[in-house]
Nucleic acid binder design. Structure first.
Length: 491
RNA sequence: GGCGCGGUACCCAAGCGGUUAAGGGAGCAGUUUGCAAAACUGUCAUGCGGCGGUUCGAAUCCGCCCCGCGCCUCCA
């Protein structure tokens, strides 16, 4: 089955055809390292992580480059505000980002280049642009002459005249046209700077990405990704730079992920409603967070609400509850084929057999994780139904079915980056996350449960129920087991 | 104003011209239970914002209208 992707460049879904058979070059805009990362960064990272994983799963040799922008106005400003050397600032936020990515089970890209390590290449790009007459030097800075590039606007589908009339751009006398953007900024005193043919300065935003992407992937390459908000001006300008300098195609497919809202409101710093990755992970199991991020298609907006997080957790629980149930089936010897006997077995065998095809068909269609998850849960329902029929757990069929499921679970985990944990470990972690985020203490809960056990032993059910209700109000739910012990978990 | 995205059950969310409109949550019913909870199963849209059109056939394509949202300025 061919893979199809929605390409922002053509605004259509297209057949994905790598430039070199069997190989894929993919560049995704990473972060500007000046602050803690929020859920939006997590969404972009996870969206392209899944794409990276799936392309590899399909046997493609993927070179995945995700950059760090570690020099920029925001970094310089933040360094001044916090009285921190700018390179220490970027270093610490890059480290923090890497920790966040690890928590969310985001794979390391093939290359994670930093802007400051490619100043020389950027200068070469800028020189090429000047030579091609699409850039000019002015007072120690260099600007891109937007009107000299006839395809300007082809990605964001804007035209220059309309942009001009939008005119919310500051008038800057050093530029020939208000739409021109900086490739190289002349250094002000005390700012970090590098030597260049135009004097001391630093690169403008955009040039690092077009330079590093073409440096590592060659031009043209296959996939360029990032958040929707990067379409204009960032990716538009990258395209203008790369094509203006090399006079050839920049990139074939532009993929963009949708935004995260918080309670239906745009997440933004001015509204003070943004959530950092660490805040979210402290409140919700990272696997639940990741599930939440892939439960809808990567291109659609999603809403971060407690209800949606609870829904995500319930879904992940459902997955692991089946995994837990399966532990009662002995692994035994691997059974290659087992022929189903009754209707329940037939239904399950059919579902297990079709699932990989359904999963791949969904992922082939523009990486539709939502649909892929749907097929997984369909099979979960059928598996549960089979187990409810009280089958012989030592039968060859049971062992075969378990073996099939375990193999599928491994594949799902490889592609989606969720469902890879031991069920009991997952539930243990869930409990820990919940207990600490709700300010409860495990010892106290367990003391209460022991009290209830004593009451029930002396047939004082009223007292027992009172304790259960008390705990229930705090979100602690009890489960009595046949052997007299009590399990508990948090709602 | 320009460009773009979306409106599918109580909520979230797939669906990309053709069998009964995925899946998750909530609700309800059943199994289970000292009573519960949890778990599991079943059930839950003759309907896909509205009106027209194309087609043998449309949630899916086209037109108009209504309503949300994003970008056009730093932003994943």
């Amino acid at each position: 089955m061919p893979i199809r992707v929605y390409n922002s460049l053509t605004q259509k879904k297209e057949l994905f055809k790598p430039i070199k058979k069997g190989k894929v070059g993919m560049y995704v805009c990473g972060i500007t390292a000046y602050d803690s990362c929020h859920l939006g960064h997590a969404r972009a990272a996870v969206a392209f992580d899944v794409i990276y994983r799936y392309l590899k799963y399909r046997g493609l040799d993927v070179t995945y480059v995700r950059n760090y922008t570690d020099i920029d106005d925001k970094i310089i400003n933040r360094a001044k505000e916090t009285n921190t050397p700018w390179n220490e600032l970027t270093e610490s936020y890059i480290r923090e980002y890497q920790e966040d990515m690890e928590a969310l089970n985001v794979l390391k890209p093939t290359k994670e280049p930093r802007a400051t390590e490619h100043i020389k290449q950027m200068i070469q790009s800028i020189e090429a642009l000047i030579k091609n007459k699409v850039a000019y030097e002015s007072k120690g800075s260099v600007y891109y002459a937007v009107r000299q590039f006839k395809n300007y606007g082809k990605l964001s589908h804007k035209n220059i005249e309309e942009l001009e009339s939008g005119a919310r751009i500051e008038i800057d006398e050093t530029k020939k046209d208000p739409l021109d953007f900086a490739l190289w900024k002349a250094a002000k005193p005390s700012e970090p700077s590098w030597d260049s043919p135009w004097g001391k300065g630093r690169p403008g935003w955009h040039i690092e990405c077009s330079t590093m992407s073409t440096h590592y992937l060659k031009q043209p390459f296959d996939i360029h990704g990032g958040g929707r908000d990067l379409i204009f001006p960032h990716h538009e300008n990258e395209l203008a730079q790369a094509e203006g300098a090399a006079k050839k195609h920049f990139c074939n497919y532009f993929l963009h992920n949708g935004f995260i809202n918080i309670n239906a409101e745009k997440m933004s710093k001015s509204l003070r409603n943004f959530k950092t990755i660490r805040e979210v992970v402290a409140e919700h199991h990272p696997e639940v967070v990741r599930y939440f991020l892939i439960a809808a298609h990567y291109g659609s907006p999603i809403d971060y609400t407690q209800k949606n997080m609870a829904d995500a957790r319930a879904a992940v629980d459902r997955f692991y509850l089946l995994a837990g149930r399966l532990q009662s089936i002995s692994d035994g010897k691997a059974v290659k084929v087992a022929s189903p006997k009754d209707d329940l077995e037939k239904e399950l065998a059919k579902s297990l057999k079709e699932l990989p095809q359904k999963f791949e068909a969904a992922m082939d269609e523009n990486f539709n994780t939502a649909q892929a998850l749907g097929s997984i849960f369909e099979t979960i329902r059928i598996f549960n139904k089979y187990l409810d029929g009280k089958p012989d757990l030592n039968s060859p069929f049971a062992k075969w079915a378990k073996g099939q499921w375990n193999k599928l679970q491994k594949d799902f985990c490889e592609v989606l980056g969720v469902f890879g944990l031991e069920a009991s470990f997952y539930f243990k972690q869930i409990k820990q996350v919940k207990v600490s985020s709700q300010g409860l203490e495990q010892d106290w809960i367990e003391k209460k449960i022991e009290e209830r056990r004593q009451a029930r032993l002396s047939k004082d059910f009223k007292r027992g129920d009172t304790i259960r209700d008390e705990l229930s109000k705090m979100g602690v739910e009890l489960k009595d087991r046949p052997d007299g012990t009590t399990e508990w978990h948090l709602r």
